[in-house]
Design a protein around this nucleic acid. Sequence first.
DNA 1: CCGTATCCTATATGATACTG
DNA 2: CAGTATCATATAGGATACGG
Lengths: 121, 121
Amino acid sequence: MKYDISYEEYMEKVKLGILTESGNCPVIPLLRMLQGKWKFEIIYELCMKDAIRFGELKKNIDGITNTMLTSSLRELEDDGLVSRKQFNEIPPHVEYSLTEKGKDLLPIFYAMTKWGFKYIP
Amino acid sequence: MKYDISYEEYMEKVKLGILTESGNCPVIPLLRMLQGKWKFEIIYELCMKDAIRFGELKKNIDGITNTMLTSSLRELEDDGLVSRKQFNEIPPHVEYSLTEKGKDLLPIFYAMTKWGFKYIP
DNA sequence: CCGTATCCTATATGATACTG
DNA sequence: CAGTATCATATAGGATACGG
């Protein structure tokens, strides 16, 4: 499988500059997906539960507005990281959850956490 | 050492919500450091060489302006990821390089690259 | 060569009111 | 409950000219 690159192979490609050539770099698109003030916190909330409702997300993420929560969720959905399930009930009921693609971000956050434990006071 | 957390321990803390509590989360500060249109490309250029000059960075990073290159480098320097060495010569000569803290980001980029190879077309 | 200063535009985020 | 619509503000990014 093309994506089972080893760390040694990766370092070699970095040194040769192969990964950044002409839009080859897979990191920039991912950083774009995570950009924005609330994206990571939203993903983090979604990590903790199998599914979570709009209102609960809003309650848990301190300071976020309707507008930002909605637009962030839409973008994460468009990027395939989050899925939205709507129940046609009264009152309305919507549940958000991570897709497999979204759950596969966890090893990245793990690596970031290890770095952070070392360097963030 | 506090930062040698295992993946299992990490996953457990995620589920319990411990890592996001009251500013505990080490990932958000890191994401902030990498935020901005040019930061990652700059770090990537610095990965490939031991040291690189301002002019060469500008030449290699397509489309970046003086203003953005300067301000991005300053912020990376303030965050301790990049170091700046000035040679007092005529004409002026400045070299930028990654610090240890900056080099330690590589496992994160490796994890991102693996994810990207799997999911970025 | 390696920037800074200034001004301008674009995008991101925020506040508030309202609705199916 | 889960949003949308509208308007306002803040921050990021860009263009250009100039200086040590």
